[in-house]
Amino acid sequence: METIFDQALAAARRERAFRKQEKGASFLIDLVAKELAERLSVVERNFEDAVELHGGTGAAARMASQTGKITRLRRIETSSMFARPGEDLTVAPLEEVPIEPASVNLVLSPLSLHLVNDIPGALVRIRRSLKPDGLFMAAIPGAGTLAELRDVLLSAEAELTGGASPRVIPFADVRDVGSLLQRAGFALPVVDVETYTVRYDSLFPLMRDIRAMGMANPLVGRSRIPMSQRFFVRAAELYAERYADPDGRIRATFSVIYASGWAPHESQQQPLKPGSAKMRLADALRAPRDDDAGGS
């Protein structure tokens, strides 16, 4: 397994962000928590035992609980500092899924799986933790997230130094996430993308928000050489040139993949057995003749 992310650094930055809790910095996790809760609310069943896996602020756990669909919910985080008063919180690194096999009905993963080095392994462990017909729901930053920032940082560094190093982490493609769910053994996997565009006065408040969200670069291969003020000024200039609206404010994209899958159960809808179809595929895909299409 390739080590892409410095796990200790990623955890430390999330913990620092939670400790400081700067005003407005939780906007993305709050959006995701609300969306996950809305999706959970339309599922026609209740979940006796649920887990929020590395959800940071706990917003997803709180909003999911408010749907009335969950009887008991516990949280797992990288530090006990994330616990609310009186809460029994399990402490575990981002890479771990400390849940007993077939012990829970629901696992929520809001904005943390993108920091795991072994995502296929984590998904397998999550699927095994679910009871039959248990549900997994995740929100994962996807391809396109902070694409504008990635572009201007690479351009500014190449222009000033003749080289470039990774300064924005890689994000998964929605098709890859769907494939990973299938490979992990989830039934009825569903993935879709919601794109949120946030506007800022300049690059500098955007970067402050990224740090305040605990999303600053934790790549093992990141450059350790501090960049000059000139670098950031040039990046800000490029951002304004390429991604500003007519009023001068810049755009930042956050593309979130919402993924869900079920632990297999005999009651679930099953694919037809080979040879049992009532219509031949060739007939279903047959192109209409001219007279079928109203031609003369």
Rank of each mutant, 00 (worst) to 15 (best):
R127C: 04
D118W: 01
S112G: 14
L115N: 11
I126C: 03
D118M: 03
S103C: 14
S109V: 13
P110K: 02
S109L: 12
L113P: 00
K131S: 13
P120R: 03
L115M: 14
A122N: 07
K131V: 10
I126V: 15
L113V: 15
A122K: 14
S129E: 03
L108S: 10
H114F: 11
I126N: 08
I126H: 08
L130Q: 01
R127I: 00
H114L: 06
L108E: 03
N105D: 15
N117Q: 03
A122T: 15
S103P: 14
I126Y: 00
L108D: 08
L130G: 03
L106C: 14
N105R: 07
V104H: 06
D118V: 00
S129N: 01
A102L: 09
V104T: 10
P120W: 01
S103K: 11
L123S: 09
S103R: 12
N105Y: 04
V104A: 09
I126A: 02
L123H: 07
R128Y: 03
N105F: 05
V124A: 13
K131Q: 15
S129V: 05
L115T: 00
S112M: 15
R128V: 03
D118N: 15
R125C: 00
S103I: 13
V104E: 05
N105P: 09
R127A: 02
D118Q: 02
G121D: 10
I119K: 11
S129H: 01
R128K: 11
S109P: 07
S112L: 06
G121W: 04
R128P: 02
R128A: 11
P110W: 07
S129K: 00
P110T: 01
I119C: 09
L113R: 07
L130Y: 03
R128M: 07
L108N: 10
R125A: 15
